[in-house]
């Protein structure tokens, strides 16, 4: 078998032969397209940990939806959105009205949410159910799940296009839009809603724990390669999709569980970017300081 054929067998055949692989890829790619741009803004706005905390915050809502309506996706999504937004609002209030800063107040609320969520799921279900909520079932995506993922992504990209400019301005100079009306506040609110929406929409595919990985890791990686905001978004989307495919292939060939494999693939991309990315990567930095050192000694000669 020629090298080309071997490569084809390794990379393409699993998707050709098995419907569940195609669906898993479709679901993950759909999720990636929406989550990665949101992740880029989270990284740019220094809100990365908040994104992770949010993924825990939505858990009790998802759990409550599960408790009341079983594995009903609309119920779980509605619950997740509700508690996600509630936590965001409550921590914002606590930050505004008390001496506690945003990071601590948010941490407090999301920890409460996480414990509440685990309790709720354990009350009615088994730890299997908890596992499925936390880690998703990317290998079991039915039509409804695929439509849901596609709908979330379409909505996300649409809203992002609308709020792009005020979002960028608000990241860079928060006071500027505040002086000119309420546009900044609306943009910020819409963005938070998108974060929650993608986390909730993604929990079916990857689970609430892992979905934030697909949101953040490609975005953090893109920063080392692309210059502009648009460039980072495009690259983050591409990297997230590549990581999804790679993770599924790893799961297929190496018998690894699927959703962690996708996140590990994204993690590998991140590490490569940190090491060798042209904008701020470690290797680049080492080369530059060596060049600088040589230049200095050259001048001294």
């Amino acid at each position: 078998m020629s090298a080309w054929q071997a490569l084809h067998a390794w990379l393409v055949d699993p998707f050709v032969q098995f419907g569940f692989m195609r669906r898993a890829l479709a679901g993950a790619v759909a999720l990636a397209a929406g989550a990665a741009p949101v992740g880029v803004f989270l990284v740019l706005r220094r809100m990365s940990l908040m994104g992770d905390a949010m993924s825990h915050a939505i858990l009790p809502g998802v759990a409550a939806g599960y408790l009341l309506a079983g594995l009903s996706v609309p119920a779980m999504m509605a619950g997740g959105v509700f508690t996600g937004l509630a936590v965001a609002l409550l921590s914002g209030l606590v930050t505004r009205l008390t001496p506690l800063r945003e990071d601590a107040s948010f941490a407090a609320f999301y920890l409460i949410s996480l414990a509440l969520g685990v309790t709720l799921v354990s009350l009615r279900g088994s730890s299997t159910d908890l596992m499925h909520v936390l880690f998703g079932t990317v290998l079991g995506m039915d039509d409804a799940a695929l439509y849901m993922a596609a709908a979330v992504t379409t909505l996300t990209l649409g809203v992002l296009a609308l709020i792009f400019r005020p979002l960028v301005y608000e990241c860079f100079d928060p006071g500027f839009l505040r002086m000119q009306g309420r546009a900044g506040a609306w943009a910020h609110g819409a963005f938070l809603a998108l974060v929650v929406l993608n986390l909730v929409g993604g929990f079916q595919v990857l689970g609430t724990l892992m979905v934030v990985g697909l949101m953040m890791l490609p975005a953090a990686s893109a920063r080392f390669w692309a210059r502009s905001v648009g460039g980072q978004i495009a690259l983050a989307m591409a990297l997230a999709m590549v990581a999804s495919a790679a993770g599924l292939l790893l799961s297929f060939h190496l018998d690894l569980p699927a959703s962690p494999a996708i996140i590990l693939a994204a993690g590998a991309v991140y590490l490569c970017s940190v090491a060798g990315g042209p904008r701020g990567g470690l290797w680049q930095g080492a080369r530059r300081s060596r060049r600088r050192a040589l230049a200095i000694t050259g001048d001294m000669r």
Partner: peptide, 23 residues
């Protein structure tokens, strides 16, 4: 200001047109 944000000078100056262009 968050100067690490990937904006260039032209984008910064263009912010001034917000009142007239909106989002």
């Amino acid at each position: 200001l968050d100067l690490a944000f990937p904006l260039d000078v032209h984008d910064l100056v263009a912010m001034g047109a917000w009142r007239r262009t909106g989002a």
